[in-house]
Simulated assay, not measured.
Amino acid sequence: MASDRSRDHIQSIERGIQVLRAFGGHNAVLRASAVAASVGLPRPVVRRILLTFEHLGYAHSQDGLWSLTPRILELGAGYFGTSSLPEIAYPIMAEMVEKTSETCSVGVLDGTDVIHVARLEERRALPDAVRVGTRLPAHATAVGKVMLANLTDGALDDYFTVASLERFTSRTICEPALLRTRLDDVRSRGFDISIEELHPGMLAAAVPIVVDGSVIGGLTVSSTTDRASELSLTDTVVPLLRDAAERIGRIYRIANPQLYRSVPA
């Protein structure tokens, strides 16, 4: 992120984005005081920001409770265009759900977190199910580790400088040295299996989505420990994920020729 001292930095816009992000995850309806506490801004400032969003049609208030309106989806419309990663991935993810009877997601790395940009649930809802736009800690997820494993040495060092490596279960890897060893293994194998590292009773397999040697995201299948095991995911799901990720990457490259121009011989 650029320095706050930069003359190109507009603090009011940054604060507005902070307020919008407060409504992420399961915080769909909040009081202004709760938003202020979440983002660390004075309540009068948050109130003015919310009133501005209400005037623009992006927020709504009733009985002191604030929520976002469907118009907020306009802000993400450019990302979810016909040539975007989610749009390309969804048909292939649907095949994965049909073949595995499990939940399939696509995540991208953003700082120390993974943002889920596409997700298809199988017919049985998973405990602690996430939604599109949900942020999860990269170190505690399979999809996060396959992307961390493919960072450059310098980028990975930067990650460890700022990552908190919070413990969520007894299986969460919180020690930098152990996580580096795990990432070396993930890089070598080309996939990761995460067992109860973020939530008890949950496990997942993930592979990177690679385009011209660069990882643009991760594809993952999630399940529960009573429906799947490390062995079943490795033997059955990982091969399907690899094929699906290769297809997604190939189509993404074709759909975005401006990003991947061929270099003349």
Rank of each mutant, 00 (worst) to 15 (best):
R7W: 04
H9F: 15
I10T: 05
S12G: 12
E14N: 10
E14K: 13
G16R: 09
V19D: 00
A22S: 03
G25K: 10
V29I: 13
A32C: 14
A37H: 13
A37I: 07
V39M: 01
V46T: 05
I49S: 15
L56V: 08
G57V: 06
A59C: 13
W66Y: 04
G81E: 04
T82G: 08
S83T: 15
S83D: 06
L85T: 10
M93I: 01
V97A: 00
S101L: 14
V114A: 00
E121C: 09
E121Q: 13
A125M: 12
A129C: 14
V130H: 10
V130S: 05
R131Y: 11
V132G: 03
G133M: 06
A140F: 01
L148M: 05
A149H: 11
A163W: 03
S164A: 15
L165P: 07
E166I: 13
F168C: 11
R171M: 01
E175M: 07
L179V: 11
D184P: 04
D184H: 08
D185E: 15
R187N: 06
F191S: 08
D192P: 01
D192E: 07
G201S: 03
A206K: 08
A206M: 06
I209V: 05
S214W: 09
I216Y: 11
G217Q: 10
T220I: 06
E230H: 06
L231S: 07
L231D: 06
T234G: 11
V237T: 05
V238T: 11
P257S: 06
